[in-house]
Design a protein around this nucleic acid. Structure first.
Lengths: 115, 115
DNA sequence: GTGTTCTTTCGATATTATTGGAAAGATGGA
DNA sequence: TCCATCTTTCCAATAATATCGAAAGAACAC
């Protein structure tokens, strides 16, 4: 992942409505949710919701699948995975022990299995 | 972590200069870097750099420690950890297998040890 | 076809963020 | 003290983003 793509994804998540939408889709799993279900769950006007969904989709964080006159939105888990890897890249110059000593917590997302 | 705090942190990271600064500090580890070193590494004018460092600090993503006339900035690893946990919270309604089946990759940051 | 439902686009407005020169504050050295 | 250095604040111009009513597009039911 490159910096500009990461900024795009982070910008998409850096807005209360969009973060709420994204989290809703993460929790929904691969089944995702219809645009209308999202609107109902979050109380966002249609035009506003559409604007934010478009932003999330453009950033690659969600996918949309038309189904009749509905549109199903799903979280793109691979994209989130790539973003998290990017944020932790070369953490502490890869001396993991140093990271761990910093905060009682391990900077553990550096230990995730990589694609 | 609550939504507004997460939005604050994501907003702080959603800007090319700030993301570059943050990654530099992550890679520097607990030793961090002086403001001047960051300016030199990234070629950002002093006033602009100060603005962005303040934004990152306000979001809790970095800490600042004055040392004489220099100021050392360090990444706050615990804050990043909390943000990542928030993003993956209740992933797929906690049926991890479903997440994994979505993309060949496990949504593995859900498996991290929690503070 | 006609009407209904779901979603998106249009457009105008309001709000917020970014930028960097110049000046000020604060520290250390001679 | 006086000067050089490091960082922040001030400020105003510029740019980007969020909002949502109204209209349009697209698909289903009858």
């Amino acid at each position: 992942m490159e910096l500009n793509q990461a900024v795009l994804a982070l910008t998409a998540l850096a807005q209360a409505h969009r973060l709420a939408i994204y989290r809703l889709l993460v929790q929904a799993g691969p089944a995702g949710k219809m645009a209308g279900e999202i609107a109902l769950a979050l109380g966002v006007p249609p035009a506003t919701l559409s604007f934010h969904l478009k932003t999330l989709a453009h950033a690659g964080l969600v996918h949309s699948h038309p189904e009749g006159r509905h549109v199903r939105y799903t979280a793109n888990f691979a994209a989130m995975h790539a973003l998290l890897d990017y944020l932790s890249e070369n953490c502490c110059g890869d001396t993991r022990a140093v990271c761990a000593s910093d905060t009682q917590q391990t900077f553990a997302f550096a230990t995730r299995s990589v694609s």
